[in-house]
Design a protein around this nucleic acid. Structure first.
Length: 404
RNA sequence: GGUGGGAUACCCAAGCGGCCAACGGGGCCUGACUGUAAAUCAGGUGGCUCAGCCUUCCGAGGUUCGAAUCCUCGUCCCACCA
């Protein structure tokens, strides 16, 4: 184990809050002195949606930091808790998922989380293995540890309560279940987003009641999504998904707001902290151009999740499509008939470039449809099928189809 | 359990018998500008081979020449009281 100071600087980089203050330092030093085994660091992911996005990777990356320093990552797939629904930060009750949906999501989560985590010093467990076996007396025992008043101290609950929106009793149970996970895996540290603080602290209480040393709580900042305002979430539809293909991922990163650049650089890339500080200063005094730095960010992110080769290819494609405003060469194909005329709105909907004929007409009317770069103006054009073969139909700046 | 109020397009929200495919805002889409950033500006945002037609305003009936608007029943939501 390396010197504890270096390790601590690394582990605390980007961390929003470490509770209680100084506890992580103490634990890490104990490990460094050989007074205790490597730390067991817990991160829970509820497979409520099919894909992991960049927001999740903030925590996964932190978990990997611990792995790199010799600690053990305990990744909990919340097969059971996903069906309860985490109320954190929610203004409404989450829709409940079926076990089948949860199982399907869990499979993709594991694969996607694996792109960030190291394969060694990794434990993966599904909390339905123990939570699913709790009997009513066990559940009552858990609920006895928490008071309604404490639950209502949470801003998300109190806001909902005040505004008369429903809070399901199952939602009160959620933090207790998450805390029970900590008892089951005897975690020394638990990671989570800042909106998880309450849940993470409940784990401490339950561990103490079970005679365990309570876990240290480490919260990571939430990152904003593509729209720049809300936190990144599937519900808001503003995610950059781990599973996005390289070109799409590169393009999405280029679309984030400038204000988020430094935060992303710090939280979702391997760029060293000192370097991030240097970039931040350069952007502030105008010596660095945001466009260049965003390119770099996009390269870093795509390279980390797909590979350097894919990152270079994605950037090249980006240059062609947006800098040169040319037509990329790997566009999907759509067959046109052999003979007769093709009605333009039908062609657009058939190729998936418009949802309805009406929408297609509107797109043409507003000048958003191009054929080989040439703007089409007649919304009801009848085009000879033979003349379309091999040409590229385009809607807006991003959607292309090659007619064959 | 009682008494009031409400359900309008993706979201919020006007409309309260014809001028309503339905004001306004948000979001989203397209265009201009640009660094596929932000900000700004313009247009669009139910369907349909579209100067027209068709289907919409929680659901089912009804009144009327005519209903999102009035009546009846049903469903769901909210507030106050218990």
């Amino acid at each position: 184990m390396e010197p504890a100071d270096d390790q601590l600087r690394d582990l605390l980089d980007g961390v929003e809050e470490a509770l209680p203050a100084g506890e992580l330092e103490r634990k890490v030093r104990q490990v460094a002195r050989g007074e205790r085994p490597p730390l067991r660091v817990k991160l829970g992911l509820d497979p409520t949606k099919p894909d992991i996005h960049l927001g999740h990777t903030v925590q996964l990356r932190k978990l990997r930091d611990f792995q790199r320093h010799g600690h053990t990552a305990v990744l909990i797939i919340g097969g059971f808790t996903a069906q309860v629904g985490d109320p954190s930060g929610r203004s409404t009750t989450r829709p409940r998922l079926t076990p089948a949906e949860v199982a399907a999501n869990a499979a993709t989560y594991l694969e996607q989380a694996g792109r960030v985590l190291l394969p060694e010093r990794l434990e993966v467990v599904d909390n339905s293995t123990w939570l699913g076996r709790l009997a009513l007396p066990d559940v009552l025992g858990l609920t006895a540890q928490m008071t309604v008043a404490r639950m209502l101290e949470r801003s998300d609950f109190s806001a909902r309560y005040r505004e008369g929106r429903p809070i399901a009793i199952a939602e009160f149970l959620y933090p207790l279940l998450q805390g029970q996970d900590s008892v089951e895996v005897t975690s020394d540290v638990e990671l989570g987003g800042t909106d998880q603080t309450f849940n993470l602290l409940v784990g401490r209480d339950l561990q103490q009641a079970a005679g365990q040393e309570p876990q240290t709580v480490l919260t990571m900042p939430l990152i904003e999504g593509l729209d720049g305002s809300a936190k990144m979430s599937k519900t808001a539809g503003n995610t950059i998904d781990v599973d996005d293909d390289p070109a799409e991922m590169f393009g999405k990163v280029m679309r984030i707001r400038d204000e988020l650049l430094v935060k992303y650089l710090r939280l979702v890339t391997d760029v060293p902290p000192d370097e991030v500080d240097r970039v931040a200063a350069g952007l502030a005094d105008g010596s660095l151009h945001p466009g260049d730095q965003k390119r770099r960010l996009a390269r870093e992110i795509v390279a980390a999740l797909h590979g350097p080769g894919d990152a270079a290819a994605a950037e090249e494609r980006f240059n062609v499509q947006f800098r040169d405003r040319a037509i990329p060469d790997d566009v999907p194909e759509h067959p046109v008939g052999d003979d007769g005329d093709v009605f333009l709105p039908a062609l657009l909907t058939g190729a998936g470039l418009a949802g309805t004929g009406s929408e297609a007409r509107r797109l043409v009317t507003s000048g958003g449809v191009r054929l080989d770069g040439e703007v089409l103006t007649d919304p009801t054009a009848q085009l000879p099928a033979a003349s379309l073969r091999g040409r590229v139909l385009q809607v807006g700046r991003r959607r292309f189809v090659r007619l064959t």
